[in-house]
């Protein structure tokens, strides 16, 4: 867990795509989720047509509040005519996306490579 006030994300920029990974294994705490939302919103707002890949490779648990933040991010990306991809989602967590039918809303790929290849 990162120290209080530190970034909750690992971010790298490659070939015009901003790639984000979570530092927390559990995305459950409301304050942390709020911080994650604010940090990603800053990344989205930093580009005119943001291309964003969010990887869940470190994530074991997430709550519906985290899903809500992803939806808000998705709307923000769409408003800026950008592209959002999700990747590396653990099967148990992917099931959460399926139950909520958010697998229909998001473009989800098995791997970061596949997600990157889908960005135009």
């Amino acid at each position: 867990m990162p120290p209080s006030g530190a970034s909750r994300l690992r971010v790298k920029h490659m070939n015009g795509v901003t790639q984000v990974e979570f530092i927390d294994r559990n995305i459950l705490d409301e304050a942390n989720i709020h911080q994650i939302g604010e940090e990603i919103a800053g990344l989205v707002d930093a580009a005119p047509a943001p291309k964003l890949l969010i990887s869940f490779s470190n994530v074991d648990h997430l709550s519906s509040a985290a899903l809500g933040t992803l939806i808000t991010i998705n709307n923000r990306v769409k408003n800026r005519k950008g592209q959002l991809r999700l990747a590396n989602i653990d099967p148990q967590i992917y099931e959460v996306f399926k139950i909520t039918k958010l697998d229909k809303l998001f473009q989800i790929h098995d791997t970061a490579e596949a997600a990157l290849a889908s960005v135009t």
Binding site: S63, S64, A65, G68, I71, T72, N74, N75, L102, L105
Partner: peptide, 9 residues
């Protein structure tokens, strides 16, 4: 309702 950010708990 799919794009509403809450109500899934």
């Amino acid at each position: 309702n799919l794009e509403l950010p809450s109500g899934r708990g």
